[in-house]
């Protein structure tokens, strides 16, 4: 018999894939609802009837929507995202580069913010209600309350313009050394860390404090274990599920929600790429970006679910 936990995990993944399929229908259907079609979008105002007809024939736009949807989906499944209307580039190549940049920025922001948030959350829980808790909460809540572009501009003014410590333009490209890239992205990483810190920190603190109310923690305390050890050995493992969920939500934000930060620091990520093509009605690119964003979002949430399932001893060791 299959272990129930494997069944649960497989179920989650299957649900996620189904969701992704539903999203693909929504994206395709949504772009079909827009006035005009791709041929009109390409030819613009100078379109003649003949040219429109030719292009529609050539692009297979006369096929029924269902056939076109299937062709599009089939292409995606084979890694073929089509070509951009505006510059004729292969979308997968262009988007791949931008996506890698976005992941690069998100990775370093996460690598700093996640451990930092959890440690700060633990410290805040350990000293709940006392000055370290208040200080940590105050600062992180202040940075999350400001819109990210304000944080960005303040950081830029102080660190780039006033003291000239860091570059204000975070442009990275092939051929730069890792060190040079890291130097270039320091400001956006700093801003992103400040923006996502509070959410994860507060959740860690709340989850730990919640567990601290339970009977087994009281027992541990009565055994004479130090408060720090109680949190580390007994409270944290049981608080993982909610924390992981919030962490994943923030990771998803770091990938799909950083358009504003990318614009402020001129970072060549996916958000800027998407915005440029939306403005030009380049539908294949918009659809592709939509699918990638949705896949990242759903994927991270599946991961969060799986980790929560694995972290739950009742599921791990069924009777």
């Amino acid at each position: 018999m299959v272990h129930p936990i494997i069944r649960l995990v497989v179920q989650r993944i299957a649900l996620g894939l189904l969701l992704l399929l539903a999203v693909s229908i929504l994206i395709f259907g949504g772009t079909q609802l827009l006035p005009g079609d791709v041929a009109q979008a390409i030819l613009g105002q100078s379109a003649t009837q003949q040219a429109l007809a030719n292009l529609r024939e050539q692009m297979g736009l006369n096929d029924p929507a269902l056939v076109r949807y299937w062709n599009w989906l089939w292409g995606i499944l084979h890694g073929d995202l089509g070509t951009a209307l505006t510059n004729g580039h292969d979308i997968a190549t262009d988007l791949g580069k931008r996506f890698a940049n976005t992941l690069f920025l998100a990775f370093w922001a996460a690598a700093i913010s996640v451990p930092l948030a959890i440690i700060l959350g633990l410290v805040a829980a350990r000293y709940a209600g006392r000055w370290p808790d208040k200080l940590i909460s105050g600062i992180t809540l202040a940075t999350i309350s400001l819109p990210e572009f304000v944080v960005g501009y303040i950081a830029m003014y102080l660190l780039a313009v006033k003291f000239r410590l860091l570059p204000s333009v975070s442009m990275i490209f092939d051929g730069m050394t890792l060190g040079a890239k890291l130097h270039a992205i320091m400001l956006p990483v700093l801003v992103l860390v400040l923006v996502v810190l509070a959410h994860m920190m507060r959740m860690t603190r709340a989850a730990i404090l919640n567990v601290m109310q339970s009977a087994y923690v009281e027992t541990a305390e009565l055994k004479g274990i130090s408060p720090g050890r109680v949190i580390w050995r007994h409270a944290l493992p049981n608080a993982i599920a909610p924390v992981v969920n919030v962490v994943m939500l923030n990771l998803a934000y770091l990938v799909v929600g950083v358009v504003v930060v990318e614009v402020v620091f001129v970072y060549p990520g996916m958000g800027q790429y998407l915005v440029d093509h939306v403005a030009k009605r380049d539908l294949p690119v918009v659809q592709a970006c939509g699918m990638v964003f949705a896949a990242v979002y759903i994927g991270l949430n599946i991961l969060a679910d799986v980790i929560s399932i694995l972290a739950n001893p009742r599921l791990r060791h069924p009777k």
Binding site: Y153, M156, Y157, A160, V161, R164, P167, S168, V169, M171, V263, V264, F265, V266
Partner: peptide, 19 residues
């Protein structure tokens, strides 16, 4: 040529000596 569409970012890039 660096493409800097954001007004503030462009001015900051000049002031910080990047362009």
């Amino acid at each position: 040529i660096l493409v800097i569409n954001d007004n503030t970012a462009r001015v900051a890039a000049l002031q910080s000596g990047q362009v």
